[in-house]
Design a protein around this nucleic acid. Sequence first.
DNA 1: CACAGATAGTTGCAGATGCAACGATATGCT
DNA 2: AGCATATCGTTGCATCTGCAACTATCTGTG
Lengths: 149, 149
Amino acid sequence: MTKDNDPKSHAWAVLLTAHATLIERIETALAQAGLPPLGWYDVLWELEKAEGGRLRMHELARRVVLSRSNLTRLADRLEDARLIEREDTAHDRRGYDCVITRAGLAMRRKMWPVYKAEIERLFSRHITVEEARTIGDALGRAVKAARGN
Amino acid sequence: MTKDNDPKSHAWAVLLTAHATLIERIETALAQAGLPPLGWYDVLWELEKAEGGRLRMHELARRVVLSRSNLTRLADRLEDARLIEREDTAHDRRGYDCVITRAGLAMRRKMWPVYKAEIERLFSRHITVEEARTIGDALGRAVKAARGN
DNA sequence: CACAGATAGTTGCAGATGCAACGATATGCT
DNA sequence: AGCATATCGTTGCATCTGCAACTATCTGTG
């Protein structure tokens, strides 16, 4: 939080602090509401957005920015909770599709209001639409470049 | 990365992705250089900035946004590596001061070029100074509000 | 000054994480 | 076709994490 001489380093430092602080609050809010952690939401939401509610494991891992081994076990937990299912994929006997279930859709819908309220309370309320656009654009460029490596 | 209707939700989503992606890259770079993880840097840097290179455990935990139990063990590791020391604090027999050692200062100095190069490559290069100011201001406000809770 | 309640830091435990190694399958080259 | 190489997803291992419980100490109130 120290005033840096370089605005870019300062922005990076604040981004780290903001992420850590807000995520901590959001996880707490979800836990207090008796809901699963944010990582579950991310997976469910990516699946819900995807064509047919299904994605290959590696593609899902890429989208939620998780290592594969990590996604394997997160998928295990979600499958135990009946929120997703693994199906053999066509044309590649090595792979699986993760498919979101009805219960998975319902869970995501149940988590969203809690998550949304926290985003509003902790983030949206404090920034202007113009700032939001700038953040989305600038960080979006950085992500795109990092992925293009 | 989906185009959201709401710029603020979109900014939040991009922030999450950017954080995850860039941190992953930075950790990889540090590991490849044979250096400790980013969490060590954060602690060392906070101590180095602090008056006398020392902070109480709880204050250090607050600044690096870590739970206390977590900081206890991170401090254990740093102490094992002789990068910090714990000293009884004056006036409160419950508490300890974490103090950075010469080796700790040296380690932070050794990590910085690697960290800095990654920040530059992954973040600074892709944003303007004006955007950096906006990010620092906007997220700074959010952090400040969240802490004032 | 005695006691209730708050705070400092640590520890046990269960769960989450990354990395390297693995078996299985696919792909490219000859 | 046959073999080397790459990719898919899982697993073992060591490490890291948060929560709740714990001891020790401090603070405020009567």
